[in-house]
Amino acid sequence: MVEEIFSIRKYLRNLKLPFCPGCGIFTVMNSFLRAVHNLGFENLKSFVFCSGIGCSSWISSPYFIADSIHTIHGRSIPVATGVKLVRPDLNVVVFGGDGDIVGIGLSHFIHAARRNLDILVIMINNMVYGMTGGQVAPTTPFGVKTTTTPYGAFEHPIDAPKLAVTAGACYSARWTTAHPKELRESIEKTLRMKGFRFIEVVSQCPTTIGRRMGFKNAGEMVKWFKEKAVPVEQVEKMAEKELEGKIIVGEFVEREKPTLTENIQSRMGRLRIEG
């Protein structure tokens, strides 16, 4: 028997992808679809993808051969909430950038974790507003120059995976595009889990922030991620000073809790809306 060769194409519409050369989104797309393939999904019919505005929101819309709802900026999680409450049987996955998920949409992110809404959120963190040309984001490292912080960012970045843990997520992890294997495994695991699941992928935008930070190409950025990455297991042994400028990778939480759907069902005795 010939082993089936994985082809990303079976999940994609025959359209030209819009991402810049070297964009980290390709790695995320590949990792996600490989995970889906490894789990035995021949197609994406049991999935619904919700996304907002930003480069990352174009991952699923309209490139995946699937139901995809490409919403306005920041509101992918509320739309996913409506979908999941009406159709709890579907796998609802949200793709979004850091601006979409923890900038304009932050409140929804926290509340979805608090509710334990049964969805997977994959946040591609390129540390910048890339689609609009490289403005400072709530994830931009301190001191980094962007088009709206020409003298260097004077705010500290948000730690989204930690926030997800505090808010009540069932799973929270951070990887970078230098960790495609770990990312794929993480996606495979979370697609088999229930509850609010969150994966942040620190990703390169060579076109905007990469150039401004002095990286010559995407490869240099990915190398930088590899160098800066510290496994979460090692963090306890490190001093705060040592952790400055590092990217903590790994799984921050993995736990089981009744989901929003289950809590509604147990209170109201229903699973799926009639008619």
């Binding site: 509101r75 979908v83 999941k84 009406v86 409140s107 509340h111």
Partner: peptide
């Protein structure tokens, strides 16, 4: 199902999602 959302933007968002879910 009726749900109180975190704000009005989330409310109309959930309504749109629910409508697309049928």
């Amino acid at each position: 199902i009726a749900i109180q959302m975190e704000d009005e933007m989330a409310s109309i968002g959930a309504v749109i999602g629910a409508s697309w879910a049928g």
